[in-house]
Nucleic acid binder design. Sequence first.
DNA 1: CACTTGACCTGTCCGC
DNA 2: TGCGGACAGGTCAAGT
Length: 291
Amino acid sequence: MPELPEVETVVRGLNRLIVDKTITSVDCSNQKSFSVSKTELNQLVINASVNSVVRRAKIIIIHLSSGYSLLVHLKMTGQLVFRGSEDWGAGHPSDSLIGELPDKSTRLIIYFSDFSKLYFNDQRKFGWVKLFKTSELATLNTITKLGPEPLEPKFTDKLFIKNVSRRSKSNIKAVLLDQTVLSGIGNIYADEALFNAGIHPESKVGDIPIEKLKQLKKEIVKVLQLSIEQGGSTNKNYVNAEGKRGSYLDFANVYARTGLGCNICSRPIVKIRTAGRGTHICTNCQKRYSR
DNA sequence: CACTTGACCTGTCCGC
DNA sequence: TGCGGACAGGTCAAGT
């Protein structure tokens, strides 16, 4: 669920909420979620302050003053939720989607010197938190293997076509989900971009006309920008750094609209399975390209 | 190398 | 009401 727009929203929130705060301690459960032990984690981050929070693909990077950086991947059900010192005690913000913290999915708590806290919750335990030296990030395989950022100027038509063409015999949907081709797209925005471009997700990349691929690239950028404006998509678990939902799904054309009328032709949206994923389409508006 | 599938988890929903 | 099974979907290892 957290894809590029959701992760971007969390990062923007954290930049407002935790920059310049100093860590006093960390507390974690579920060792599987972490690359270092609680003891090590405490040794390496205590008394460090937060320099900045950035994003690469779907990875959240928290740069610390100690020369280390915390990397967080939310996978499907991860959340990074900030609670200010005024929320200490019984109450919690009434407009938050989640209640009292910690709860049973809390895996990590970062305590700041002003008594505010950052919670990492993850129901399904797929997410992770890793600690690296900031100077090592540039050569880290986790990061260097990632494809281009779709919202950066370097993401040109030419680069998009070159990268998707590496997998010319695959379904276009599977290729959009491949983070080495381009980074940040997940199931929701793959379905939305393919609908907006009028392409059936099971079209093979090699069968799609170049002009249509260019249009798809344009639709990817547009849908990601729109979703960031809406604070991302909340289907079930996703919340921003303040525990609030995103509203992109109010604008969705196909995702989670099975059985509802297509916004263009009114025929019902159909759900199929493509590349092992639930896939939402309008069979009338999306053309299946084939040889 | 290109490409596909299943495993990792837990909570929820659907049919019987 | 309870119970089994399918499903949710990001990534990677293992398969063809």
